[in-house]
Design a protein around this nucleic acid. Structure first.
Lengths: 336, 336
DNA sequence: GATCTTTTTGCAACCGGTTGCAAAAAGATT
DNA sequence: AATCTTTTTGCAACCGGTTGCAAAAAGATC
């Protein structure tokens, strides 16, 4: 059916090795043979079989891209950047959707069966043990959007969630709010824990400020809305740090439906700065996560780890910053 | 490095064939040998190399998933459903991001090099020739969200865009509007052309109704907003059919910013019914595209085509329906 | 033109599996 | 126990490439 190396060799009147060599970078072929082979290959529309060659070279150029975030619009941007970035480096993303799985065993087995050169786990909610399962199986792995730990067992690229929590608290305090709160995603997500931790930490230096903490049942619009509706039944805080933009948008819709104004009655600051956050009808003040940089660094690190599998586990964190839009009032000039 | 068939064979004290057979469905192995092999395999943590086996079986179980829609939130749902659906059938999606390419040659070559069993082109904007390039290269292909033609050269699964255009027109007419318009995406997208065509067709039976047509520069929030702002500078129509939900949301934001009320001053009906459309702060009346069914049928058709490559090109269209929400006033009782 | 280097080439073995075929083993029948 | 069937097994060739090695060809030097 398909045309193989052998067919080209026969037509060009050379050995199979000669054909193989014309298609491998840096191999020794004379200009004359190369010309003959290229002519024959073009006539037969030959293109080498990457799978077969991977068998001897040990490189498939396949990268497992594993994620469980198929409901957060930010991840459409993430997939876009990952697939483009990998393609530019001649790598192919083999996408694995983890939506219902918590056990890494299946994905590990599957990706080993396909001899992927490396794996990128793109998720802010999976525990570190997930990525570690790949490392334990001998597969180079990078946890993108993962949790920072002081002694990482696996490469992590992302943001400092604790610092973000702190940054959010300070942003709210700087605006003169005296009663603020954190509205997080599910408490078990590592990123949520860290954001809450940083938030509270910053407030420990402000004993006069009232602080609240609560958790939505998921990182979703509905959960954010429901949790805010619940909060509005008692005395709500003056401003909220929501653990994610989608959550923020849900909270905003609850606030507005209750007849309250944003940012005058209640302020909101989100986290991520997904594309939608700057839409004029949303106009969300939020902390930007430098997604493109995180993804670029993740791919770099994956490539480096493939070249040198014994590389020491490394953490690359990128700074976030507040993006001023319309859901938080301006910094109060009276504050210190 | 990795443990192979041979290692297991040696440890189990059997031939390599025996090991291979215990791992192939329906091969002839005695219970005794199977037990020995399975024990050895478990001890060595062996799992067969899918890539190597594909060489002889001719099946990689890889499916190329090709798309250029990495900015429409609907496609996050699409990727979620595709990856899950393929995984459930033991297939693996090799994702190809076409964002900047219009020429299929690269993707065709690349996916052939990886010997994908089939390709799914998931895009409502790519021309039919794109999918045809795969067929011409001998790769089973399904164009998902593609354009319906009476004599298809390639399998197409999607919706009847002409019927949708008609449905939208009728919905607007049924609400008593006398001046309506289509606000499409880029005119060159095949789906846009068809939706416009259907819209106008339905109106040909209503010469008394005033009709307008215009096109945004992209299927994006910004483009929808900009185009609606332009329209508001002259006398806008009473209600608009936007060619897509994202476009609709952009248009809505322009309308509200202009101080007009929806649906009282201007009505909007979208198309797709992406997850966000039902968010309470958007609450978009729209035509639902049955995404899950389209994707299920696409995968089915791809699998069937892999089994029988000479299958006649087929078109599977799914009916859409209007989802009533808050951006269109109720059906006017006075209408016939 | 003879001799020494360097480059190019083909052979053959290998990557990690599968599979047709014939021999061996097991089971059935008398 | 002898014979016939059926099942199980291993051998060897193959899938489509790559690569170390030695021989052949080309080029350099005198």
């Amino acid at each position: 059916m398909a045309v193989t190396l052998r067919d080209v060799a026969v037509r060009a009147g050379v050995s199979r090795s000669a054909v193989s060599r014309t298609f491998t970078e840096g191999a020794s072929v004379s200009a004359k043979t190369r010309a003959k082979v290229e002519k024959a290959a073009a006539e037969l529309r030959y293109s080498p079989n990457a799978i077969a060659s991977s068998l001897t070279t040990g490189r498939t150029k396949l990268i497992g891209l594993v994620s469980n975030n198929f409901h957060n619009p930010l991840f459409l941007e993430v997939f876009d950047l990952f697939t483009r970035g990998l393609q530019e480096r001649g790598l192919r993303p083999l996408l694995v959707n983890l939506s219902n799985e918590t056990d890494p065993a299946n994905s590990v087995r599957m990706l080993r069966q396909y001899s992927v050169d490396g794996v990128i786990v793109a998720s802010s909610t999976l525990p570190p043990s997930f990525a570690e399962a790949f490392r334990d199986a001998g597969v180079p792995v990078v946890h993108s959007f993962g949790r920072y730990t002081t002694s990482p067992h696996v490469h992590v690229v992302g943001i400092d969630n604790i610092a973000c929590g702190r940054m959010a608290a300070e942003a709210l305090i700087a605006r003169g709010h005296r009663s603020i709160a954190f509205l997080g995603g599910p408490e078990k997500a590592t990123s949520t824990q860290d954001r809450a931790g940083g938030f509270l930490d910053a407030l420990s230096r402000h004993p006069d400020i009232k602080v609240g903490i609560s958790y939505a049942s998921a990182y979703s619009f509905d959960a954010g809305r429901a949790e805010m509706q619940r909060l509005l039944q008692n005395t709500p805080a003056e401003a909220y740090f929501c653990g994610d933009d989608v959550l923020s948008i849900g909270a905003l819709s609850a606030i507005r439906d209750a007849g309250l104004r944003v940012p005058d009655d209640i302020g909101i600051i989100g986290l991520n700065d997904m594309e939608m956050a700057r839409w004029e009808n949303i106009n969300l003040t939020t902390i930007r996560q430098p997604v493109a940089q995180i993804i670029g660094a993740s791919i770099d690190l994956a490539v480096e780890t493939i070249q040198n599998p014994d590389r020491h586990p490394e953490t690359r964190l990128f700074p976030c910053r507040v993006i001023e839009r319309g859901t938080l009032r301006p910094v109060s000039p009276m504050q210190p």
